[in-house]
């Protein structure tokens, strides 16, 4: 575990921001901190970066109580991010690297490395205010990577990013993970996270509501839902299904139909196959894992809305 968060409480003068939040972040994973806006994600991140102190509870960094010296080993891209508008790109990046504790020579070396890698050298002498928003974002990400952090924290990294930079960021997250960096990022948007997150924690209204490996959570929330692809009549299929399951939706391309069915409790897939086989020519059957979005909504609102999207197939 690179980071263990233990029973963190944080109150501000008129509300509770975090209530008894505990979880651990293993080495070398991409870890998602998920939850709706205002759930307490940013507060937790600020406690991890020691901008805030927790009222109760503690954080262990590699097993030792968190201290200022470990902050230098963390890289941080805040949600509300800005730059000095009047500074030049290169000197600005070097300054931020030096604030993290790099000496001038090392900071320059690192800035040049990243600027070359992301093809930013032509902007070296430009002022920040002359850059497009996307370019500024690149500078900000670069600044959080300069000191080769062991833990990189990205607060809502995809909000406000254009698709090109979002893709670049995703790619870089994977690269960093492969080179051994642990990445913690927060998001209120579940759609981005499934493909890159190994583990997640879900926070809602100041409390942790869910945690674990993405795949395990999805399996735990699997609701016997399958997609049937077949040639034949949808009415016939539905009639044959009878009480074996509920049709959630269907679609048709040419003479090929796809029907999503949630099996009734106690009904086996084999039983359903048996009852529909006479009325259609089955082409494919897929297990439908719930999306994190659906799990999130279900957990948060307690209602079952797991009908929206096909995300995982097996």
């Amino acid at each position: 575990m690179i980071l263990q968060i233990q029973h963190i409480h944080k109150r501000f003068h008129n509300h509770v921001a975090l209530r008894d939040v505990s979880f651990g972040i293993p080495e070398g994973v991409v870890f998602g901190l998920l939850g709706p806006n205002g759930a307490g994600k940013t507060t937790l991140i600020r406690i991890i970066t020691r901008i805030f102190m927790p009222d109760e509870g503690q954080i262990l960094f590699r097993g030792k109580p968190h201290a200022d010296e470990y902050v230098a080993r963390i890289g941080y891209l805040p949600e509300e991010r800005g730059l000095y508008r009047k500074m030049e790109v290169y000197e600005h990046a070097v300054y931020l690297g030096m604030l993290k504790g790099l000496n001038r020579g090392k900071a320059k070396e690192k800035v040049e490395y990243w600027m070359k890698r992301w093809e930013m050298m032509p902007w070296k002498k430009k002022k920040i205010q002359e850059l497009s928003k996307g370019m500024q974002q690149k500078v900000q990400i670069m600044a959080s990577l300069l000191h080769e952090p062991e833990l990189l924290i990205l607060d809502e990294p995809f909000s406000g990013f254009d698709p090109v930079n979002a893709a670049l960021l995703k790619e870089e997250i994977i690269n960093l993970k492969n080179s051994g960096t642990t990445i913690l990022f927060s998001s209120h948007n579940m759609n981005n996270v499934e493909e890159i997150c190994d583990e997640i924690v879900l926070i809602n209204k100041s409390e942790k509501v869910l945690e674990g490996k993405v795949r395990e959570i999805q399996h735990a929330h699997f609701e016997n839902t399958f997609d049937f692809e077949f040639e034949g009549n949808v009415m016939g299929f539905t009639n044959a299904l009878w009480s074996g399951g509920e049709v959630l939706f269907s679609s048709q391309i040419g003479n090929r139909n796809t029907v999503r069915v949630r099996l009734s409790p106690g009904v086996e897939l084999n039983d359903v196959i048996g009852s529909v086989l006479p009325v259609c020519r089955l082409k494919e059957i897929r297990q439908v894992l719930p999306s994190l979005h659906d799990i999130f909504l279900k957990t948060v609102t307690g209602k079952d809305k797991a009908i929206s999207s096909i995300t995982q197939t097996e």
Binding site: D68, V71, Y76, L83, L99, K100
Partner: peptide, 17 residues
Amino acid sequence: LEEKTNRIVEIIISSIK
């Protein structure tokens, strides 16, 4: 005020006090 309004302050105080 500049640091606060252009929101660079959080980047900086994650590096220094």
